[in-house]
């Protein structure tokens, strides 16, 4: 980070925020210890640890993320009623708060923290959690890799021209000799969720050469159209150097809201993802 890097200022602001969060944490734990806690008290305590973890991850503060994650997991158990915050547990929470404060200050001042004490409290939290949480922490931390923020986005976010879609339904499935063939049949819930097929087609277009066939054969007579329903589907042929994972990633947000098959390089015989993994949103 250079001197004029705005991240330096945000990092300083993060440590100020941490002090405020640690104070909220301490106040909440005291209320729990006094036996006067309600649901919001434990929510405040949870959010304090959660926010410290969130910020720490952005700055690559591994030790802080690791400890906060474990502490947060236990507090989440208390919040959901799976863990009882008895006198012993609350005592461990106070000690965890102290460790968290030490780790925050060690990160801020670039000094060493008390590793032995940290490990001891991690062990106590693990006991409260009731299983060997190391595996869980490792696994979940994989989804939470700290990274440095590089602001050169290197993305072409331009491209104003619209796609030209062939609206004639194919009499039968076209045969393409190379690239990927994508069959995309959106469910009505895809539109309700705020997703939009045209956006996905534009992203595919940026990946290579695109041929799009829109099947309009399911559109009923005008008098029978339900504006909340989905009638269109697409057969898409994409020629690209990207791998199938990259092609599938375009549909990440809608995989549970459509019928999707992608055939071509890297295809497996596995069936397409379930069409309704999640219940559709009902306004």
């Amino acid at each position: 980070m250079s001197d004029d890097d705005p991240m330096i200022e945000i990092r300083a602001s993060f440590f100020v925020e941490c002090e405020e969060l640690l104070e909220s944490l301490q106040d909440g734990l005291q209320t729990m210890d006094d036996g006067a806690a309600d649901d919001e008290t434990i929510n405040v305590v949870f959010r304090a640890v959660h926010s410290i973890k969130g910020g720490a991850g952005a700055f690559g503060l591994d030790n802080l993320v690791r400890f906060a994650h474990q502490f947060e997991s236990v507090l989440d158990g208390v919040r959901s009623g799976n863990i009882t915050a008895d006198r012993n547990a609350i005592s461990t929470f106070f000690q965890s708060g102290d460790i968290l404060a030490d780790l925050v200050r060690a990160a801020r001042d670039d000094t060493e923290s008390d590793t032995e004490r940290t490990q001891s409290i991690l062990k106590s939290l693990e006991t409260i959690l009731g299983h060997d949480s190391n595996e869980v922490v490792e696994e979940e931390i994989d989804d939470f890799q700290p990274m440095s923020l590089v602001m050169d986005l290197g993305l072409d976010v331009g491209g104003e021209s619209d796609l030209v879609l062939s609206e004639l339904p194919p009499p039968h499935m076209p045969v393409f000799e190379d690239g990927y063939t994508i069959n995309f049949i959106p469910d009505s819930s895809l539109y309700v969720s705020g997703n939009e097929p045209l956006h996905l087609l534009r992203l595919l277009r940026e990946m290579g050469q695109l041929e799009v066939i829109c099947d309009t054969s399911s559109i009923p007579a005008l008098s029978e159209i339900d504006v909340e329903k989905s009638y269109l589907s697409w057969t898409i042929h994409l020629t690209t150097d990207e791998d199938q994972e990259a092609v599938r990633e375009v549909f990440d947000f809608v995989a549970d809201l459509c019928h999707l098959t992608i055939s071509g390089p890297g295809s497996s015989a596995s069936p397409p993802p379930p069409r309704h993994l999640y219940p559709p949103y009902q306004p």
Binding site: G54, G57, A58, F144, Q145, S193, G194, N195, F253, Y281
Partner: peptide, 11 residues
């Protein structure tokens, strides 16, 4: 279920 369009994982 609440009506989200997609998600971004922090950090």
């Amino acid at each position: 279920y609440a009506g989200a369009t997609g998600w971004i994982v922090k950090p």
